[in-house]
């Protein structure tokens, strides 16, 4: 099979640098495409705009350079006067912060970005942080409305359905977590059990993370028969 020979031949090239996107192609292909940039650079351009934001402490920061680059991060969107999912998520992330202990602010960084930059000034965010006794290492951020909206969509806090995307009461309770240097990005539900969230975040330390599943067989708070929460029909 010629195909197999080709594969064998290619196996010898397995250590080619990632930046080269044109190895061993038929004539013409190499002219058609740009040589690939580093994937990290591609991700930065595509998903992590370097917008200027202001922290709840009034400090000016750049999203990629100061908040994301080389860091393990936990990131969500909220707003101060939100009566829906924000509060349970904030309260849950407080538990997460507590469980992570002094790692938060040292090698794990938590960010909450406002969905209502018009009303959530740095002062308003600072009041929120104080009112909820949120510890250092978890930064609340505001910025220019257009840029915040682009940032929100770039980071995956958007809905495919415009109706849902533009309904602020329905904004997502999902939380992004990742390790920028390793290019690992995923999400967890902000209302999930805090110890489980901590386990997810721990995977960002390195692929050596072991499942802790066999150690903790818990049945949660669920009653043994037929328990069900009251229905919420938000989607």
């Amino acid at each position: 099979m010629p195909d197999m020979n080709r594969r064998k031949m290619l196996a010898t090239l397995a250590v080619a640098p990632l930046a080269v996107g044109v190895v061993g192609q038929t004539v013409g292909v190499e002219n058609k495409f740009k040589v690939a940039e580093s994937t990290r650079e591609k991700l930065r351009k595509r998903f992590f705009p370097n917008f200027e934001l202001t922290t709840h402490e009034g400090k000016t920061v750049h999203f990629y350079d100061d908040l994301i680059r080389d860091k393990i991060v936990v990131l969500n969107f909220m707003y101060v006067k939100c009566e829906g999912v924000c509060m349970p998520v904030t309260m849950n992330l407080k538990k997460v912060q507590k469980l992570l202990g002094d790692r938060v602010g040292r090698d794990i960084f938590m960010y909450s970005i406002t969905l209502k930059p018009e009303e959530d000034t740095p002062q308003a965010l600072k009041r929120y942080v104080r009112a909820h006794k949120i510890k250092p290492g978890w930064t609340f951020l505001t910025g220019k409305p257009d840029e915040i909206n682009t940032l929100r969509r770039s980071l995956g806090f958007k809905d495919a359905k415009t109706r849902l995307d533009q309904d602020l009461t329905n904004h997502t309770g999902m939380v992004k977590y990742g390790n920028e240097a390793r290019q690992w990005w995923a999400m967890f539900p902000g209302e999930a059990n805090a110890p489980w969230i901590v386990e997810c975040i721990s995977w960002m330390d390195g692929t050596d993370a072991q499942p802790v599943i066999q150690a903790t067989q818990k049945e949660s708070k669920r009653a043994e028969s037929g328990h069900r929460h009251s229905k919420t029909k938000k989607r």
């Binding site: 829906g84 999912v85 809905d159 329905n170 904004h171 997502t172 309770g173 999902m174 539900p189 902000g190 209302e191 999930a192 059990n193 110890p195 489980w196 386990e199 499942p211 802790v212 599943i213 903790t216 067989q217 818990k218 049945e219 949660s220 669920r222 069900r228 929460h229 229905k231 919420t232 029909k233 938000k234 989607r235």
Partner: peptide
Amino acid sequence: FDRRNGQWVINDELFDCNDVR
């Protein structure tokens, strides 16, 4: 199977690998 503020729920509960439903 439902969706609550963008979070998938099954019988209104969220996933946890350690939670035997």
